[in-house]
Design a protein around this nucleic acid. Sequence first.
DNA 1: TTCTACCTATCTACTAATAGGTTTGTATAT
DNA 2: ATATACAAACCTATTAGTAGATAGGTAGAA
Lengths: 184, 184
Amino acid sequence: MDTREQIIQLADNLIRDKGYNAFSFYDISKTVGIKTASVHYHFPAKSDLGVSVIEQHIHNLHVLREKLNSKSPVEKLDKFFSIYASIKNENKVCLVGSLATDFNTLDKKIKNKLKIFSDNMLDWVSEFLQEGRDSNLFQFEGSPRTKAMMIISNMLAIVQLSRLTGDKDFKTVKDTIKQELIKK
Amino acid sequence: MDTREQIIQLADNLIRDKGYNAFSFYDISKTVGIKTASVHYHFPAKSDLGVSVIEQHIHNLHVLREKLNSKSPVEKLDKFFSIYASIKNENKVCLVGSLATDFNTLDKKIKNKLKIFSDNMLDWVSEFLQEGRDSNLFQFEGSPRTKAMMIISNMLAIVQLSRLTGDKDFKTVKDTIKQELIKK
DNA sequence: TTCTACCTATCTACTAATAGGTTTGTATAT
DNA sequence: ATATACAAACCTATTAGTAGATAGGTAGAA
């Protein structure tokens, strides 16, 4: 992994661990083993780094969608859950949740990119929910978009909330959502 | 309102607007009209202010519970929703959500106090959900605590997420939760 | 007098960011 | 084959600004 990628990876972890306004170029530099000025060589401003972190997530989601394209809605749902399970496992939160709380302090470029990412995520989940209902695998009322919004917000929040209430609440909520969606 | 209360009120708004690590004693001082050193007179450290903000929320919840004690579960649910509606209306997020994303940067005293607050909230919602189901007003499966966790996380997250996806999504999600809970 | 609530002044540490220099490899022209 | 040019990726050094925090002083009220 080259330096640039390493910086993005690290920034991503820091944002989801401590929040955007709690990490600095010094945190990056000491771990990568270069000076802060060298981090600025790759990313002139902190907001440029923020934008790149989100772009990485957009790209990863795109690749995942392609990969799962021909798989069943249940497999897609499981993969969706497993993303949040590993977030929880690392005691982090999801990118959208983290940046949403800092939203009013962010650069316009970051805000716009983040909107694109959350739209993509919402689009993907809506799509496989619809697909699952059409093939009688899932049951839910209302539009797929609304259901997607509810499932995403449940997962987004439970990784945050279970930092306080205990990690096993994550599993309980995840299992309940799946059960409600799949039971017949 | 005396200075101390004014500082707490202001810090509360700043935390829920921009996040704990994005506000400073200078933000407080310029609005209250005193110097930063004078803010330190009331709250020696930033974490003391943070603790007081949470204590205020704990107190407010306690007062609310007392006030609604004899009211119906539906009224309690509506009041619960209206709290989040006004948060959304101000384009803020809820205290627990905001501090949960910054959790790994917080002082131990803040972490502990925050746990108490989220426990109280969870306790209250679980209680009126149970009450509502017992009197055939609500229907849901699983434990009241799990359902409370899911409803709280939905609301916690939708105020965050709808900063990106649009304010009307807040209303859609809120209405859907209520409908699913009350329909017979 | 002593306490409350503020003040001025200052400190240390950290922040993002920039200017300008060094090293290293690589491509091109002679 | 060797000198020249150049860019990539780092460096040192520095800037201007902000952070939280403290020492010590003051004016007015109890």
